[in-house]
Amino acid sequence: MIKKIIFTLSFLMIIFVSAQKKNDTEAVTEAAEKLRLAMISGEKPALESLILPELTYGHSGGHIDDAKEFVEKLVSKKSDFVTIEITNQNVQIVGNTAIVRHHFYATTADAGKAPGDVTLDILLVWAKVKNSWKLLARQAVKSEKKK
């Protein structure tokens, strides 16, 4: 009888952990989509709600923004994303951390300049804070072509 109870409890824990991981994957995917939309809109409250104060945001050219600089550039339209398309996204949950990789294709109008195109591969690191996911780090590398 004890063996059956232990087996049943173990089975239920496995199901619970699997369901939690799936829920976290969905929540990270939703947070990444909210970030994409906030980067296009440049809305300060939306941007700030998705990031941690310790954010380190690496650009493909080598410059690294902190949280304040990241938000300021988007709000001021110094970095102005007209469109952002995300493809080939992969989300991996490791404890309270999520690793997200995707291909990023965007049209830009930075500081009022003529539209440009940017094609990047992105690594995002999200941290679970209480019940929400916040962006902790981002690194971009130039990509040859749209995938």
Rank of each mutant, 00 (worst) to 15 (best):
A32W: 00
H63T: 15
K78H: 04
I40V: 12
F81T: 00
L135V: 06
K128I: 04
F104W: 14
S143G: 15
P45Y: 07
N96I: 02
K44I: 00
A111V: 07
V28G: 04
N88S: 11
T29N: 14
L55H: 04
M13H: 10
S79F: 05
K34H: 15
D121R: 12
H102V: 11
E69Y: 02
W126F: 14
F16A: 14
N23W: 08
K78R: 07
F7T: 13
K146Q: 15
T83E: 07
A127K: 08
M1G: 14
F81Y: 11
L135Y: 02
L74D: 01
T56R: 12
A19E: 13
G62A: 13
D65I: 04
H59Q: 11
T87Q: 10
F81M: 05
V75D: 05
V141A: 14
N88Y: 08
V28T: 10
N96S: 13
K44P: 04
D66M: 06
T83N: 08
V28A: 09
A27M: 08
Q92D: 09
M39V: 01
Q20R: 13
S60Q: 10
F7H: 12
A137E: 00
T107C: 09
L50F: 10
E26H: 15
S18M: 12
D65Q: 04
E43P: 04
I6K: 09
E30L: 14
L124N: 10
Q89F: 06
L135I: 08
K3P: 06
G58F: 01
E43F: 05
I64N: 07
I99V: 09
N131R: 09
E72I: 05
K142L: 15
Y105N: 13
K142T: 15
K142H: 15
A140Q: 04
I40A: 06
G116R: 10
I122W: 09
I14T: 05
K147D: 15
K78G: 02
F81H: 05
V100C: 06
I14Q: 01
L12Q: 04
E33D: 13
S132H: 13
T8Q: 03
A111K: 13
L9D: 04
V71S: 00
N96F: 00
K128D: 02
N131P: 02
K128S: 02
S79V: 03
E85R: 08
L135T: 02
W126G: 00
E69G: 02
A46S: 09
P115N: 12
A127T: 04
D117A: 11
S41I: 08
G58R: 03
